[in-house]
Amino acid sequence: MGVGIEVTNLNAWYGTNHTLQDIQLHIPANHATALIGPSGCGKSTFVRCLNRMHETNPIARVTGSVRIGDIDIYQDASPVEIRRRVGMVFQRPNPFPTMSIYDNVASGLKLNGYSNKKHLDEIVERSLRNSALWDEVKDDLKKKSGASLSGGQQQRMCIARALAVDPEVLLMDEPASALDPVSTSKIEDLIFELKSQYTIVIVTHNMQQAARVAEKTGFFLNGRMVEFDSTHKIFTNPSDKRTEDYITGRFG
């Protein structure tokens, strides 16, 4: 089951650019939480701070604390351990181009040294079923390269890959922004299915998407979190003027 996330006084920098300022936030377990805001507002940086991907950039810096479940990810564990608990789906589908569909999905386990073949088969099937891709690919799992799938299928395969390591939290950084409407709708259905089992944080540029899939929504602007509330409240009766301007389209 998923776990909640407690963010306290989170600040992040790229070089001298202060991209996140004093973020305070509680993300509930086993729900979908959407983060919206204009481009460059810091929402992507924020999710990347939740699995310490932010620090893969050598000029990046973070202060503050993030508790996922019972551990402080910046104090109690290494990035590698955190990322095994916190899965991530990226903006553009990023399959491993040299691997088959099967190997792509199993990669998180295989590359960490897990080799129980029978169990891997089960996990791959279950992950692909969970990501609603199984029926489309079950016949050529090991024959087809992951990169030969369509964009939408690739993204669902990437979700399956993230699910295969059985994460507690699933971060999605604009997972549908590079996809066509049909694929987008499939991904959204999927998020809807998955959120009962995982804590999902989804960054989106698309407010309808936030409204459709998330129970909670946070609005980011210029590196600060302006408002965080239930999705219904954010979209019908926001308490901050800037949020209202943004969701009604009266914005830059």
Partner: peptide
Amino acid sequence: MPGSLKKVI
């Protein structure tokens, strides 16, 4: 996705 800002409601 492009243009979605104006269509939100």
